[in-house]
Amino acid sequence: MDYYPFIMIIHVDMYVFWSYVLAIVSAIGVGLLVRLPLLPERPIRHSWTASAVFPTAIIAMGILAIFFKLGVNGFYYGLDLALAIGIITALSVKYFFDSIFPKPETEDSHE
């Protein structure tokens, strides 16, 4: 019985870890299903294309972290929440992203 709290901590940490993994995997998976590209076109550093890895997975991780820190853990140790956030993030990036964060008009600052 003395080890019980320690085991609980490990379980909770593992669930948190797998929740983040699930959020990333579901965001990328659903992103690919709705035909987002896996990665932006090369050279990536100059690309404005929203892809499954960037920014979809980053946004899913950030939103899941906010929910966890607000004390919202879903029904199954955060796993269901992670799955839902991954799916909603991927759909949002596909259908609403360009209207929320439009690509800026090109400036003539390079000449």
Binding site: I58, I59, G62, I63, A65, I66, K69
Partner: peptide, 8 residues
């Protein structure tokens, strides 16, 4: 993770 989202 939250900082990365806000920075983005």
């Amino acid at each position: 993770f939250i900082a990365a989202l806000l920075v983005y």
